[in-house]
Design a binder for these strands. Structure first.
Lengths: 243, 243
DNA sequence: GTAATAGTGTCTTTAAGACATTATGGA
DNA sequence: TCCATAATGTCTTAAAGACACTATTAC
């Protein structure tokens, strides 16, 4: 009652598309590869799944080991599995990609591997430019799929709150939508939509001064996870593939 | 430049949640297992991915081999990967589950393995009953995830047309939504929604007599794949977990 | 003061919900 | 004839889009 050694035998890895928003731009965390194959190019943080290890546990472990990110608080979900026969020149390596979202916290890029980790704006990753990174393996496809998943889920879930640190203003939250979707949203209408969705956000009663403007109310994420009806995404007003 | 033999070594399989609608009920195709483990219980069609084989190719091959279903015309998409360490008693077996949708065609349940394949109403699968099947492995979870994916995608895509043979009436299409969602939809409003979505369906100009009633117009699927805005799903009026 | 951002209010437009009503066949 | 289903039309309601306008701070 065992599986023959060669039956569907593959090496299994996890990769993580970790997204955040820095300076109003959607960014992805990449790690510079030090070894072959693809030495010197940029790759998603990830690595082999160990025996007896869960996929999500492996993804959180790799995030911590390779980038110094404490994966405890970040949103993490399975994205898709990539298994094209020759996607890795070393042999049959199948990867289960994950999507992770976090606020722009100053995280320790210390430690062994973490030194070579940095954030890249997704438009520089998706549109190869002279100053953009060269990506390893099929990671361009995985990044694109991850970004598309994030864009889609902002429409019908409350996941946008995963991109902001607590507490946050409604302006912070609106900036998340604007950065991820590459659009400008009408502030009053956005406010009405968020506040009319029970459990999207919880008012703290506090306010905070924001630049030179009226102080803004501070909120925490609410219990709701789904949006009914969905937040409608306008046609992109900015070019999503460029800066 | 090779991967150590034991680095993340697993056996890789594909499984297929093939759904159709029979007699107004959403049904899933299961195969009775002849061998251990779980001999005598029911499982999703699936099997080991061969060397140099794509995931989708493996899924279509297993469908054909195990159930006699010609997977050419059916809609097939990756669902999710299941990799809990002890989900298979034979060792570390990771499965990439797929979701497939097809019309209720009388398909050849002939051939070797196909003899033990049959359709089960999903409510009998999801709610264990005395007359329902016992499922192998973590296949109850996979079936549930597949059904939920199908229910969700009917909301924002035109995938309902994958459940009906061409040409079809708007009543046929409405029955798909009613069976998958377990609700009753208002026929005039449903008609208005479908016809006002460009590219959802294409009028053939033909009609067909349907029981004792006014003849219904016949349609083909259109080019559209997404619904904007989405088809709204009412609160379930029937119990989705029961027949 | 001005500029900038938060927040309120209102009118319009779109689309869904809830029907009533007519049309056209089969039993 | 009645019954079942398709198809059309209308009124209401929910919610988004497009603003004008006020409020409160920094400079």
């Amino acid at each position: 009652m065992t599986v023959p050694d060669d039956a569907g035998a593959v090496s299994l890895t996890v990769d993580v598309v970790l997204l955040t928003i820095r300076d109003g731009r959607l960014c992805v965390l990449l790690v510079e590869r030090g070894i072959e194959p693809f030495a010197g190019t940029w790759a998603l943080p990830g690595g082999f799944v160990t025996a007896d290890e869960d996929l999500e546990a492996a993804a959180r472990r790799e995030l911590a080991e390779e980038t110094g990110v404490d994966a405890g608080p970040v949103h993490l979900e399975q994205l898709r599995t990539y298994a094209a026969p020759h996607r890795d020149p070393r042999g049959r390596v199948v990867t289960v990609a994950h999507l992770a979202l976090m606020p722009d916290l100053p995280h320790p890029v210390a430690g062994s591997d973490a030194a070579h980790a940095r954030w890249w704006p997704v438009d520089e990753v998706l549109t190869p430019t002279t100053h953009g990174p060269v990506l390893a393996f099929d990671h361009p496809t995985i990044v694109r799929d991850g970004v598309e998943r994030a864009r889609a889920k902002l429409e019908y879930t409350t996941l946008a709150t995963s991109f902001v640190a607590e507490p946050f203003t409604l302006g912070d939250l609106r900036s998340v939508y604007e950065a991820v979707w590459g659009v400008d949203l009408d502030a009053p209408n956005f406010r009405r939509k968020v506040l009319s969705t029970p459990g999207f956000v919880v008012d703290t009663g506090e306010t905070v001064s924001v630049g030179r403007g009226k102080p803004a109310g501070l909120y925490h994420p609410g219990e709701a996870t789904d949006l009914h009806p969905a937040m409608l995404r306008p046609e992109p007003s900015r070019d999503l593939t460029r800066g």
